[in-house]
Amino acid sequence: MKRIYIREEYCMGCRLCEIHCLVQHSKSREIIKAYKGEYPKPQPRLIVEEKGYLSFALQCRHCEDAPCLEACITGAMYRDRETGAVLCDEDRCVGCWMCIMVCPFGVISRNLEGKKVASKCDLCMGEETPVCVRNCPNEAIVYEEKT
C-alpha cells in the first residue's frame, strides 16, 4: 500500500503539516475559520517530534500487524480493505483508550472535539494525497508505494 514516509533530515520543524492536518479535520476546512471560529478547537491527527535540530512529523503508520486492531474491544478500529489503512469507526468507538495504550508510536490520541472517541490519521480519505504531504514545504513527508 501507499504509505506516508518521513524524511527527518529535511524536516524543518515548521509544523505546517500539523496546521493543515488540523484544517483538514475541522468542520469548515477553512484555515482561518478552523483556527478562529471553531470551538472546541479542531485537533491535528499527527504530531511533530523535536529534539535539538532533529524533528519529524509522525502519524499513524498503518502497521501491517497493528496492535490497535487487536486491542479494540468494540471492533471500531478496522482495516480498510481497499487501501489497507487502519481507520476508526467513530460510531462504534466507545472511548476506552485501549488503542492509545498499545500504540507503539503514540500517534492515537483522545478526541477532545465532541464525542469521546479515538482520533488518528485517516490518510485524508478522499484526498489523492494526504494534506500533510501536499503541504510540506520541503518534501520531508512523502506518500508513496515502496517495495
Partner: peptide
Amino acid sequence: DEKCITCQVCCRM
C-alpha cells in the same frame, strides 16, 4: 491580524 492564526510557523522559522 485578521488573518494571523497564531500558528507560530514564523516564530519557529
